[in-house]
Amino acid sequence: MGVRVQTADFDLSREVKQLIGGRTDVGAIVTFTGTVRDEAKGQPITAMALEHYPGMTEAELERVEADARQRWPLQATLIIHRYGELKPGDNIVLVVTASAHRQAAFEAAEFLMDYLKTRAPFWKKETPAEGESHWVDARESDDAAAERWKS
């Protein structure tokens, strides 16, 4: 259980080790890492700035995490989301889910990412190799991805 919003990078294996510890009842651990791409709509980008709403971000991530834990039998969950100045290749987000069996861990990880993208108050601003930096529009495909969990 845990939500962290930070500027610092994270280390996947260290986070998993810390989260699971010496537990032997866990049968499946799924991790998702989102990273900064070096292009957007065919244009090379050199940097990405992430702004967020301190306080609300943590509250939304905790709500999303609580939803997941109600839907699936999860033994542990972790969400880390970075903000501030990032470069292509940098980590943005880490989601970890642990369960006795893989299906719950896979599904919950996907659910957490889908909901996080439509609910957590983050905004991305990209700096292209040429021209002015611009805010990234929310994607309709993200809304559709979150919507499918409502059925």
């Binding site: 709403y53 943005i92 993208k117 108050p121 983050f122 905004w123 991305k124 529009d137 929310a138 994607r139």
Partner: peptide, 10 residues
Amino acid sequence: IAFFPPVSGG
């Protein structure tokens, strides 16, 4: 009360 564009995290 906060106002903002549609969110684009993840």
